[in-house]
Design a binder for these strands. Sequence first.
DNA 1: CTGAAAGCGCTAACAA
DNA 2: TTGTTAGCGCTTTCAG
Lengths: 330, 330
Amino acid sequence: MQQRVTMHDVARAAGVSSATVSYVLSGKRPVTEETRRSVQSAIDRLGFSLNPVARSLRTGRSMMVALIVPDISNPFYALLARSLQDELRGREYHVVVCNTGAQLAEEQALLREAMQQRFAGVIMTPFRLSTQAFEALRSAAVPVVVSADIAFGEVDLVTPDAEDAVREAIRHVADSGRRRIGVVAGPRDATGGDPRLDRIRTHAAAAGLRVSQEHIVHGEHTRAAGAQGFRHLMRSRRPPEAVLCVNDVTAVGAMDMADRLGLDIPGDVALVGHDDIDFATLVRPRLTTIRYPAHEVGRIAALLLLEQIDGRSDPRTAYVSADFVARAST
Amino acid sequence: MQQRVTMHDVARAAGVSSATVSYVLSGKRPVTEETRRSVQSAIDRLGFSLNPVARSLRTGRSMMVALIVPDISNPFYALLARSLQDELRGREYHVVVCNTGAQLAEEQALLREAMQQRFAGVIMTPFRLSTQAFEALRSAAVPVVVSADIAFGEVDLVTPDAEDAVREAIRHVADSGRRRIGVVAGPRDATGGDPRLDRIRTHAAAAGLRVSQEHIVHGEHTRAAGAQGFRHLMRSRRPPEAVLCVNDVTAVGAMDMADRLGLDIPGDVALVGHDDIDFATLVRPRLTTIRYPAHEVGRIAALLLLEQIDGRSDPRTAYVSADFVARAST
DNA sequence: CTGAAAGCGCTAACAA
DNA sequence: TTGTTAGCGCTTTCAG
């Protein structure tokens, strides 16, 4: 185990003070070309590299950004994570991934921890956290960006602009003569209700279609919950002729179930997802969906976070446009 | 922006020294019940929480573990990440996710950085890094676990035990009368060659089947590369009757291409994947594959890493058994 | 059982 | 243009 090389060692080897070494590295103060070179050579010779922990302690700023999501193995969040990291890498930030399992206790614990850890920032998709939980973060002056369908307090938000897409989806479904719309919605106790469900209801009503109460099922955003919800819908007295799902993962679960029930999609029932994750084009029939590009969400979230780190303090909302994509499941 | 509460503040409020506060927190020294309580009450009253950066600087140990993978948006790695984090959470470690894009330069840079950052440990899936690159890490005394099909120096390894599974896959394919085996293999310049390809060749030969050179294509472990490789195979003079892919993601790409070429699976050609990621059961036909459970890989990697952190220094290899799963694509 | 104090490696005044 | 130095907040030895 080799001994750690410190700035002091470099300074001695180069015959300068450690401050000069620091300034050579940071460029925050002019340095003679000559000393710069001798310091650089000492750095190379000794294999020195700056200790980021010491730097963080001193400056009070860490280079760690926390990404708090329900489940990184959900393809939407995985892609979001990838995109986020790509954007942040250029500024030398690292991404710490935390999974909440969409559970309130974990959301609280991880958010609290993110404050204590003094992360450079937090990007979070909350599900059950109260909107006011973020006020504490603000007072702790930790930059935060929320990725969600509703606003969480006075905090930066990345959110879908999906009105047109949902309107189009409803029209598309109606055009094929389907009247009864079913919805595989999110959990009943999610914070701020279920904006995706609300949008569907609104535009269905505008198109003169019914979304009767018995055609709405609530559940987690998982494949299993999607299957279960879909079964429930299709077993109702008059099953829906089209089912819209809160996201693609639940829609895939619905397809699992359609298969098991011997139902043909779109023959017996049309199916619409949300997000257009990679394998929406992979299932058969290919999934009609509302594209909400995780890649873009990650990119925008990174941008907003960096702006905050750089000093902006007024909260912003960024709308990422969601588009209707008709494929074979409708 | 509220002022940070330090141990010193707590100490003053409780009328003790900061050392005592530290010991109350760590329990590394006996403390009177009375002082313990007064310290605890001061902590609660002031809302104190320990600064992990200062602690890390002092102890020289961080609570960050780096996960270095080609692409976190690949479902295999996403699930590995999830599992890893679940296992590590109990010990208060955080997981920093780094994507290399399977590129040598990134692999090198991130590994180097992981050393400099003084992460508590590194879990990595290298693709093009030389096996000796890890020796430097060893001398830096950073715990490392590699997840790969080949050994990388004297380092802990989690690797598939897939001999039986591949033998079975080959037999399964042969039993349906298919003789010509094609392989969508990994990149030609991957470190240590391509063990998955080698296994296929070995067991094909043992079963009296031919894997001719023109029926082997090399490419990245991506959906696009899988599609391209598959097309190349199916356009050869005498196309293979069965194609084995280096992983499920490439197999899915092959299915994309089969679709486009109007080829029926398994009618025109049988298809076998590797890993059994979540959506192997989602494509139609369902993908026959060799299950290599990412979840288990993550769990074992976490275990090995924690052992190293706790002091073990002799390198270990953990075999995770891979099993053949016959589905509809063969 | 408790306190005093050194110092982890760095940055950024302040001085020269 | 460069050096000196005071900490950042914690842990841990050494005294008491």
